[in-house]
Design a protein around this nucleic acid. Structure first.
Lengths: 187, 187
DNA sequence: ACAATACTTTGACAAAAGTCAAAAAATTAT
DNA sequence: ATAATTTTTTGACTTTTGTCAAAGTATTGT
């Protein structure tokens, strides 16, 4: 999700509003494999990825890590449900490589909602977008083979393909790692 | 989605507000296989299913019907994206059996938003719920076999299981009909 | 009622995807 | 640098799922 473009282009914030928004955010640096959010905690921050890559995951009954999302540069990192509804997160969010984010605390974000009306629309549209992405994700599982899913993933995410492990991508696509290794091999 | 309970229990509308809401809705009857919404049209109505069953679907590149959702009694029938953003729907919504709905037109619903503040929250929560359901749906494809998906579907939807065809359920679960027939047979 | 249509089952295969275990590569930490 | 750990690949299967085509069953419309 390319939030910066979204905000500046589409919502026509005044210079003042842009400045105010910008100054509400502060930088955060994560080394590889550090948590942005732990399962059970309440998500208190929204983050924008300036540099790096993160992943979101939970554990299934067999304690396997199930990856549900990647956050490359330009993404908005948030557990939407936890952040908005102030409930414990069911997912973990962790950096895959060293990453730089801009973050904003829940309370500050709330202030923005009140001070800058456009933010309400931005938030609504983001929820829409996230929802659309999940619909698309489900329908790809529904209609595409493992090979097709992998090919499309690589086309859409060339930068992730290089930085995430085969295991991460396999988990995200719901494919066994041995199978994905074989899919990769045959061209 | 059990909208009636939601509205009455959780949001504590005044009697006045409930009455106002109720009178904004009007009944709609659909015979089996009638459209509630056609691909390309803008979704102008929200419907609540009082009786019956509907399905939402689109066509893939091979002109196969891909079913993305069922709407049994108590469901809210809507193309969220189309209704809220006034864009053409990418999905069709059609009754499977004779059905009775209560519907409300876009303009009327907008009035409700303005007159009854709680409706904004209801709408936001519904969006959340739909989003959560899609996340759940995707993660089932990601982690469960065809047999497991079917078993769980039947457990969660005993009434749909009886009224939708095997083909409908197979499409929804992303399983070939011959395969689903065999899954059914073995116990 | 019965023809037409739609749906489901079945057989015989084929292809796709998973399992287990071991080896080979790559990465990381000391 | 090199030992330890983590990832990836590979072989030899097994299991799951899909394909095609035909034959049964239901359902529906006139």
């Amino acid at each position: 999700m390319q939030i910066s473009e979204l905000v500046l282009d589409k919502y026509k914030l005044t210079e003042n509003e842009v400045n105010h928004t910008m100054s509400a955010y502060s930088p955060m640096t994560l080394k590889a494999n550090q948590f942005f959010l732990k399962e059970g905690d309440i998500c208190n921050y929204i983050g924008f990825v300036k540099e790096g890559l993160l992943r979101s995951y939970f554990y299934d009954d067999h304690a396997n890590e199930i990856i549900t999302e990647f956050y490359p540069e330009g993404s908005l990192v948030i557990s939407f449900d936890s952040f908005n509804n102030r409930v414990p997160s069911r997912e973990n969010i962790k950096s895959i490589v060293d990453s730089e984010l801009m973050i904003i605390k829940y309370e500050k974000q709330k202030e923005l909602y009140e001070m800058i009306p456009a933010w309400n629309q931005i938030c609504k549209d983001l929820a829409d977008m996230i929802s659309q992405e999940m619909i698309e994700r489900a329908s790809r599982f529904q209609t595409m083979s493992a090979t097709e899913r992998y090919r499309l993933f690589c086309k859409e995410n060339p930068t992730i393909r290089q930085r995430a492990t085969l295991g991460h991508i396999a988990s995200y696509l719901g494919i066994d790692i041995a199978t994905l290794s074989r899919i990769r091999k045959k061209k």
